[in-house]
Design a binder for these strands. Structure first.
Lengths: 221, 221
DNA sequence: GCGTTGTAACTGGTATGCCAGTTGGATTCC
DNA sequence: GGAATCCAACTGGCATACCAGTTACAACGC
């Protein structure tokens, strides 16, 4: 048996696609969605779409009101604070744990990422910087080999991506500092100084949070 | 309009009920479930049951194979290790953050919990001890007022409950030590010594993990 | 007796139709 | 003209029917 095509449930496709549309900003916060319309757009029936939306609601990406409609959730200021607290807890612990334990392959991945960050910074490519930042944080977590943590980090990165693409500041100070902080964090991890790496990570995340919260405009639940 | 009964979707009821049945051990790991049978048991149709199961799969409580069946997931040794790593990250950060910031009402809640633990210990009521332990850890996290963290903690507590009810050791050493550790942790938080509280919490969780992993028998995914 | 094969009884996944409830706007009545 | 009202066009939630795929077992052929 060649196993043919993996059955690949429609609901999985609906989930991935919808999550992508929301995270990418194509469905910005506040957008009203309709099961029927989405079903038509995704060329499937309501059922798998319904299941996917239900899961997205559980993960906080949409809000469903019976007999009313579905609306894409944004993050409130409180949500963002909560979000960064969780990231601080997880990521500080991560670098503390990783300190002095990186192998060569892992180090190479980090260095490649940082080099690309520096290129993107020079080219003023903010989209690439954003992607590389997310990748860097996920990369560090992935080295733990902990699926629980990875799942959470991927969700957190997606949620913050949804917010950050709507923050347009022309100031280059923060991206420049951010790349430098990444270098310092990796250096501290490499040096085996877990406490220092954790402290740097905390400052790094705090700065990221301030950048998002300061140019304050901001959405709703 | 008196708003009558809140609509309370059937799928929410299905989700809560199924999660309860799994966590409580009534559906032990490895149990085969059937959408139709569950629908009959819960007195509703397949649809809400299907949605609930899909969400439970996303949260790791069950495993669904198309055209085959649904099986209640247990935790592998790796799952347990991952689980405790995440708890260490979150809970150590929590007590560090809480150190020196408890108000009187919060302190009272903690003290009441500890008193009940001591009573349960004296009465040799292991079920109560288990419940109070879970409550104590959730209590601490709840003081942060962080919904992200609370949601995660509730899921983690449920998953570990599912495992721990299957560990029957007659040794009273661990429960006794556990209660004492809770007292020390609260004392450290109260004294405002975050680093010490975090260190105590790490040891406490490590001991809990060892207790589960040592009497090793253990299940599958 | 053993291996093969065919079949029937399941499984979850999906499509469809209907339901109750909400909403917004046109209409009607003051 | 303004306000209350009613109705039609939605919404998501649920039940049902059907589908494809899997599995286990019985019957058959060797």
């Amino acid at each position: 048996m060649p196993a043919a095509t993996p059955p690949s449930r429609l609901q999985s496709r609906a989930y991935s696609e919808l999550r992508r549309l929301i995270v990418s900003g194509e469905f910005p916060p506040g957008t009203f969605l309709s099961e029927r319309q989405l079903a038509q757009q995704l060329e499937m029936s309501k059922t798998p779409v319904h299941v996917a939306l239900e899961r997205l609601e559980a993960e906080g990406f949409v809000s469903i009101s019976a007999q009313q409609g579905i609306v894409v959730r944004g993050m409130s200021v409180e949500d963002i604070v909560d979000h960064y607290e969780l990231r601080e807890a997880v990521e500080c612990w991560t670098v503390r744990r990783l300190a002095g334990r990186l192998n060569e392959a892992q180090l190479k991945l980090l260095q490649e990422n940082i080099e690309q960050q520096q290129v993107a910074l020079r080219d003023d490519d903010l989209d690439a910087l954003m992607r590389l930042d997310s990748e860097m944080h996920c990369l560090l977590c992935s080295f733990l080999g902990n699926r629980e943590i990875m799942t959470i980090m991927e969700r957190l990165q997606d949620k913050i991506h949804q917010v950050i693409i709507r923050v347009h500041d022309t100031d280059r100070t923060r991206p420049t500092a951010s790349v430098a902080e990444h270098v310092q964090i990796v250096d501290a991890v490499l040096a085996g100084d877990g406490a220092h790496a954790a402290a740097l990570m905390a400052e790094h995340l705090e700065a990221g949070k301030r950048r998002i919260l300061n140019p304050s405009r901001f959405p709703v639940s």
